[in-house]
Simulated assay, not measured.
Amino acid sequence: MTKSKKSEFRPNDYVVYPAHGVGQIVSIDKEEIAGIPLELFVISFEKDKMTLRVPTNKATEIGMRSLSSPDVIEKALTTLKGKARVKRAMWSRRAQEYEQKINSGDLISIAEVVRDLHRNDEQREQSYSERQLYEAALERLTREVAAVAGGDEVAAAKQVDEVLLSRAA
């Protein structure tokens, strides 16, 4: 193992874990699991009241990453302004694709889901599963926008909302 690999993430860093979104590294612990000594990132997802232990040598492999740069945030917000692209596939297939995009941890993909599932007041109502996916994507996007901007989720939600409302219906 190289030294640079380990020092990529440090305690107190905010990171994005693909399946759970933004979390904060609380510590780096050494534990023995099944007789094998392991070094683990202890990541806290405060909003979800969840703690995750990720082996340091697997973090990059599973897609854990640092927060997006401000220009990626900008690109994600620009993505929101685009016209919704809805494939003519069956909902179950589309829902699966949306789920994969949300869990990819890729902010642009998450923004695409928000864009594609966003509804104005005049548009038809969302089904329960559409709403669930939309809210999951919106939450991931908002939390990362907030974390990059310094942690104000209310301001981030307002910013994302304004972009969605400003786009051409």
Rank of each mutant, 00 (worst) to 15 (best):
R143V: 04
G82W: 00
R140L: 06
P37D: 06
E61I: 10
L52C: 10
L67C: 00
L133S: 02
R143K: 14
L165Y: 07
Q24N: 09
Y128T: 15
K75S: 09
E112S: 09
S66K: 12
L165A: 15
D121N: 11
D161R: 15
K6I: 14
L107Y: 03
S68V: 03
L107T: 00
G63Q: 06
A156V: 04
E31K: 12
Y14P: 01
V163I: 05
K83H: 07
E112A: 08
E125K: 14
K30A: 13
E46A: 15
E99G: 00
L67Q: 00
A59G: 01
E61A: 15
D116C: 02
V86A: 08
R53V: 02
V86L: 11
V113D: 08
I33W: 02
A146K: 13
Q126G: 05
P55T: 09
R53C: 12
G21P: 00
L52I: 10
V154Y: 06
A136L: 08
I43K: 01
D161E: 13
A169K: 13
V163H: 05
V113T: 01
S109Y: 03
P11M: 06
F45L: 04
D71P: 10
R124M: 14
K101G: 01
K6M: 13
Q123P: 05
I28V: 14
Q126D: 04
R65N: 09
I28L: 10
K81H: 10
E8V: 14
M1P: 11
A149Q: 10
A157G: 11
V16D: 00
T2H: 07
S68M: 04
T51A: 01
V114T: 01
I43V: 15
K6C: 09
Q100S: 13
E162T: 11
E31T: 10
V163Y: 03
K75C: 06
T79E: 14
A155F: 05
D121F: 12
A157T: 09
I25Q: 06
Y134V: 02
R124F: 13
S7M: 11
T56M: 00
S109P: 08
G35Y: 02
T60R: 03
D116V: 02
V22H: 04
Q24I: 04
L38T: 12
E61Q: 14
V42M: 04
S4N: 15
G82L: 04
V160M: 05
A111N: 00
R10M: 07
S66N: 07
I108E: 07
D48L: 14
K6Q: 13
G63S: 06
A34M: 13
A168V: 12
E74A: 15
K75M: 08
Q96M: 11
A137G: 00
R53K: 12
R94I: 06
Q132H: 07
N120Q: 11
D71M: 12
S109Q: 13
T78V: 14
P11S: 05
R143E: 07
M90Y: 08
H118M: 03
D71C: 11
L133C: 05
L40G: 06
M64S: 10
K3Y: 12
L67D: 02
A76Y: 00
E99K: 11
A59H: 02
A19S: 15
R119K: 10
K83S: 14
S127A: 07
D121S: 10
V160K: 08
A149K: 09
R93D: 15
I25D: 00
